[in-house]
Nucleic acid binder design. Structure first.
Length: 566
DNA sequence: GCATAGTTGAGAAA
DNA sequence: TTTCTCAACTATGC
């Protein structure tokens, strides 16, 4: 076999461990050039928030360092990948292109276009699967009629039916660069399409990309990248009690990022005012070996952004987790769907649903999505998005999203329910778009799937189970520490009123320095009234669905209980 | 055709 | 603290 000149195209999968595309790229290669293309379609503040972009840039910096340690480096290009990649293949006279397979519609379209151009150039393309536990085409082939299940238990059967999770790819100790006089490091010999290659360090800053810098004390409280992601994974895996008992629905959405120890669980004492600074300090000045192992974490693992960008391989996560569950815990631990492995399987569940469902990210033309007459009320949507619904629990969650690009899973439930079926009856697509922009871990399949879940459009249908915008947060955090952190205007409100400041006597509001209607908005809806109206509207939509699909009107009528009206 | 398990809520009643 | 109800649906097994 002739030696191959190869472009290794990074998109997700920003790692050197368990990277089958990297392994393939180095197989019989005379030279390999790793590239990442900053796609201007994505890189703008209205589409990708500063927190996620910063996480991406940190991940690229870390990847570049890992590649340099292997004799190579990452070249960051700007432009539409459908033009940039074929141009680079041609300019560098490459005959092989390797990248990680991507199941999202945007990526599928982009990759089809690149593949076609590559074929025309006589370039062979390899796109191995490593972003999901299994090859989704194999899972899809096991689905009845090729339609992914909308119930978790059914998914588990299909997943187990395709066999064990494939092993991780071997490590690649060295990568041969394109060093034969091509001078690629600054991209100076590239064709016109590549003229705006970023020079210097190669990886631009947020500001260079037209973003405002993230304020001190704000931002996602952990660094992006494979090195940090694997370190956090392994520190989490050392917490065997935490892993054994992990039940996602029972974790606390109001828990702030606090120092965590490898074996011991939470560090004693009050949480620091600024977790990010505290973490840096504690790693610089270890008071003991135990403290040196401490890392900042909320109630859940916060590994989601590392999985989203592929800084951490889901298969590495899976196999290392299984080793702890089977060997150290001897099988005595929580089980899916609530357990940690259950969380990886939820991810796979949504990825499969997204891969096998046309128009998955919208209501119209979406086979699995209930058709519900949501509104696009811009005032309500803006109030929700800008933390001025007048419900401190909801507004604090949305402020954490804005500042850090992250909030706990159940906080996402609370605000998504509030926007859609619980109170405001605004379209889930509008909420999904906000999450897609702001979340550091925004993941197309998971985000749209969860919005369908929370809006009772698919996967979950008990629309009368509504999260209370007052009761839900209060259940976890009676004193309202979470609200006080993210809504400082309420920091002196007595605990008795902090979830419902409009019920506080005016003298209490004045004393707290927060008068409702002046310093903090009055609630935009009466929850009791709004939720009742929402439930009625969804019931009507469900009835219309029943009467309009499978079986017949007669069959649907037979199921109706007395007193259903009509 | 029917029963059943599963499925990440709140609040009253026991 | 546990149980029940409130306006539901999917998938499976018999």
């Amino acid at each position: 076999m002739a030696a191959k000149r190869t472009i290794l195209w990074f998109r997700k999968g920003l790692r050197v461990h368990d990277n089958p595309a990297l392994v393939k790229a180095c197989e019989g290669a005379s030279a390999v050039q790793p590239v990442f293309v900053l796609d201007p379609w994505f890189i703008k503040p209205e589409r990708v928030g500063a927190n996620r972009l910063r996480f991406l840039l940190e991940s690229l910096t870390d990847l570049d360092a890992s590649l340099r340690a292997r004799g190579s480096s990452l070249l960051v290009l700007h432009g539409d990948p459908a033009r940039v990649i074929p141009a680079a293949l041609e300019a560098w006279r490459c005959d092989r292109l390797c990248y990680e397979f991507d199941t999202e519609p945007y990526a599928q379209k982009r990759d089809a276009s690149v593949n076609e151009a590559a074929r025309a150039l006589g370039v062979e393309v390899h796109a191995p699967v490593s972003h999901t536990l299994w090859d989704l085409d194999r899972l899809l082939a096991k689905c009845p009629r090729g339609e992914p299940p909308t119930a978790y238990a059914s998914f588990l059967k299909i997943a187990h039916g395709v066999g064990p999770v494939p092993p991780v790819a071997p490590d690649v100790p060295s990568i041969t660069p394109l060093s034969d006089g091509d001078a690629l490091s600054d991209g100076k010999d590239l064709v016109d399409a590549l003229r705006d290659v970023v020079t210097g360090s190669g990886i631009p800053s947020l500001e260079r990309l037209g973003y405002e810098p993230i304020k001190a004390g704000e931002g996602f409280p952990a660094r992006g990248g494979e090195t940090e992601g694997l370190a956090r994974l392994r520190k989490m895996l050392a917490r065997t009690t935490y892993i054994a008992e992990f039940k996602k629905p029972q974790t606390n959405p109001t828990e702030l990022w606090t120092p965590v120890l490898g074996k011991e669980g939470k560090v004693k004492g009050a949480p620091p005012a600024n977790p990010f600074e505290a973490a840096k300090k504690s790693s610089k000045e270890p008071k003991s070996t135990q403290l040196a192992e401490a890392f900042m974490a909320p109630a859940t693992t916060a590994l989601s952004p590392y999985l989203k960008f592929g800084c951490v391989s889901p298969r590495t996560f899976w196999h290392e987790l299984r080793a702890v569950l089977d060997v150290e815990l001897g099988g005595k631990h929580s089980k899916p769907p609530e357990s940690l492995e259950g969380q990886l399987l939820w991810r796979e569940f949504y990825y499969l649903a997204g891969y096998g469902t046309p128009n998955y990210d919208r209501m119209a033309g979406n086979r699995i999505c209930r058709q519900i007459p949501w509104t696009w009320d811009e005032e309500r949507l803006a109030a929700w998005e800008e933390s001025r619904t007048g419900f401190p629990w909801i507004d604090a969650c949305m402020m954490q999203l804005k500042q850090e690009g992250w909030m706990h899973h159940l906080a996402r439930h609370a605000v998504a329910c509030f926007l859609t079926r619980g109170d405001l009856f605004v379209h889930w697509e509008a909420g999904a778009a906000v999450f897609d922009r702001e979340l550091v871990d925004a993941d197309w399949a998971l985000n749209n799937g969860n919005w369908m879940w929370l809006s009772c459009s698919c996967f979950f249908y008990q629309y009368f189970r509504v999260y209370g915008p007052v009761s839900f947060g209060k259940k976890y955090d009676k004193e309202g520490a979470y609200i006080r952190k993210y809504l400082p205007q309420l920091k002196d409100m007595p605990a008795k009123y902090i979830y419902e400041p409009w019920t506080a006597p005016i003298e209490v509001q004045r004393k707290a320095g927060c008068v409702v209607g002046v310093d903090y908005p009055a609630p935009i809806v009466d929850h009791a009234v709004a939720s009742k109206e929402c439930i009625e509207k969804i019931a009507a939509a469900y009835n219309a669905h029943k009467n309009g699909t499978a079986g017949s009107i007669v069959a649907a009528g037979k199921k109706r209980k007395a007193g259903d009206g009509v």
